[in-house]
Design a protein around this nucleic acid. Structure first.
Lengths: 216, 216
DNA sequence: AATCATATACGGCAAATGCCGTATATCTTA
DNA sequence: TAAGATATACGGCATTTGCCGTATATGATT
């Protein structure tokens, strides 16, 4: 028995791309596709004999998060994997709350998509490592789960993030420099830049703002 | 430059098994192993030039969760992947809270362990799908996060608590003194006493410890 | 090839911080 | 009532921190 899959995306080109990826595997059968959440619900009315849905988030009429919530409510047996280009905290958290069983990015290759689907049907959750890390951070910082809306889009470099993590442990310049094998001067410069980006003026404020914005 | 790894497990047979798995890959170098968390900390004192630690949980003297918390505190640059046979919610959640960057099961094969390590060093989180699912569930049910353990019994005076609350907002001595209508000297003395009770040495540490102990 | 972002490093200075005293008034509690 | 805890206040000092420069090397982007 083949695994029955549906694809929901408002971009027909991307639907084709996903179908293409799935076509490599004989154990999959794409039953149908939908242009948005509402369209999906209509089709499910007729036929909900389905194993799994690959769901985009940004869609007109009824978005992927809302659709997921409704589908999970009505047809809990259908697994849902979010398949989207966006990996911002808000989407991830809302998708999980809505009941998604996995969260993958569209850039995924065919083999990994295949694995993710099988793992999900096998009682696991599909997510790539960067998404996994975000869920861990969300778990660590209940604060970051709160008001997601007014979050600014702050971009730190890798090095800055590393330094910030050390800061958050209460380490001073010297210890941070030791751990990262840097001069204290460089560490202090990084911190200076971090302050500017976060618009703060002390270690404490930096750490708090970073946590609220899920940077660490 | 090879990736520098340490293995922590109280079962020497299992250490050998992991080494065996890692030996297939030339980009890895197992720097040392430790029998428990305490042993690990001692060895890190001498050499913390390390990229990643594979950490068991159930160990005598100092278990993997506690060890993770301490290592992450002192050497935040070192990634830690829990590698254990148990995947109960309690362990997973505590490991994440302690700062683990991944959670894998010992039954993992060599190739997947290799991938997980690389993904983790690359800024992702390593976890197998069943663990991933559990983290999703933990995220969905904030209540399940409640169960707390033995917190120390730290007693602050009302005034100290007030000062601590101000501290936690990122205010400096002068602002706190203004708000509480005190001299800065007094505020500083209160903070001194707070530090002694909490056994910390900076504003940041004080706020973090206070939060962990529900003091503010 | 040129520009931009990033990572690295050094120096200086004023302010803030952490830690050590001491001291007094008040309030609890044994 | 006497002892202990608490809140208040002041002075000093070494270190850390926050902020301002400048500068070079590298890698990415255009």
């Amino acid at each position: 028995m083949k695994i029955k899959i549906a694809i929901v995306d408002d971009n027909t080109f991307l639907i084709s791309a996903v179908k293409e990826k799935l076509s490599f595997f004989e154990d999959f059968s794409v039953k149908f596709s939908a242009m948005n959440g509402s369209d999906l619900l209509t089709q499910l009315e007729h036929n909900h004999n389905l194993d799994l849905i690959l769901m985009d988030i940004e869609m007109p009429v009824l978005n992927g998060i809302e659709a997921t919530q409704i589908v999970k409510q009505k047809y809990p047996h259908i697994k849902i994997i979010m398949l989207t280009v966006f990996d911002n905290d808000e989407n991830i958290f809302n998708a999980i709350k809505a009941g998604a069983d996995g969260y993958l990015l569209k850039e995924i290759n065919a083999q990994e998509l295949h694995n993710g689907i099988l793992e999900t049907l096998n009682g696991g959750a599909a997510m790539n490592p960067s998404i996994a890390l975000k869920t861990l951070k969300l778990l660590r910082n209940p604060l970051s789960i709160e008001s997601q809306k007014d979050k600014e889009d702050i971009k730190l470099t890798n090095r800055e993030t590393e330094v910030l993590e050390h800061l958050s442990k209460g380490l001073n310049y010297i210890k941070i420099a030791e751990n990262l094998i840097l001069s204290t001067g460089t560490v202090r410069k990084h911190i200076e830049n971090i302050y500017k980006k976060l618009q703060v003026h002390s270690k404490l404020e930096a750490v708090q703002k970073a946590k609220r914005n899920n940077l660490i």
